[in-house]
Design a protein around this nucleic acid. Sequence first.
DNA 1: AAGAATGTTACATG
DNA 2: ACATGTAACATTCT
Length: 278
Amino acid sequence: MPELPEVETIVRGLQKSGLVGKAICDVQVRWPRTVSHMAADPFAQRLRGRTITRFSRRAKYIIAHLDNGSCLLIHLRMTGQFHIEKEGTAADTHDQVVLAFEGGRQLHFHDTRKFGRFELVTAQAAELPHLGPEPLAKAFTPAALQACLQKHRRIIKPVLLDQSVVAGIGNIYADESLWAAGIHPKRRADSLTPAEILRLHHAIRQVLTRAIRRGGTSLGNGATNFYSVTGRRGRNRDALKVFRRDGEPCPRCGGTIQRLVVAQRGTHICPHCQPLQP
DNA sequence: AAGAATGTTACATG
DNA sequence: ACATGTAACATTCT
């Protein structure tokens, strides 16, 4: 489900939820493997009594900053969602973790596929230094992108998806950015010209910024789709130009959008706008 | 009703 | 050391 814009949308929702500053009075872990590197019991014990001072985002991680200086790192993986419920609300089948806050409200972590992860870490570890730069940070200049890409002889799409190269891009926004920049996903990362790098840099930032502005991308109608903390769907699907639009006309040239598989991921391109041979 | 799915990681193979 | 491929996680959606 969630890439950078969806995680950002959720973090903003959590930050505005009214839970910041309230103490966590109860922790229920219903699927113990949701908690990384620790058993559920000590995890619950260490979290109980803590207060979340703020929520932030790094890459596709949600960071809940705690009043004792440590951080709760949360990754939604494919189907993780957060819902805020009133006191006494029973956990849904797919609610894997429930945090009860003073004042009575509860934060339910709903995760159908159970891939999502919670981990207690130090503030330093929460900076996730092994991940690449934030694509929306000021420091992420075209030169920075060029430096990222030059190191890799791989094809461009899996490089964009590699979180240690650039942080936060997933399958939707990789396809959308490559289309916007007119670059074929199978081009070698180190073969892009300076003009192409400039276009790709602009495309990544524009595509991600627009998606955040539109509250993320919700694709189908299923319950495993992306929903914000307030239960709203993202409005970015209408802004997608190629992702899951195979067979439809390219909005730029009218050619037919194609689906192919690149690096084991479904990939969508306009063959005319994104030629393999430049 | 089979195949794919917005993600990550460990392990195997070239 | 590097690149690429496969499986695993677990369930639902198309």
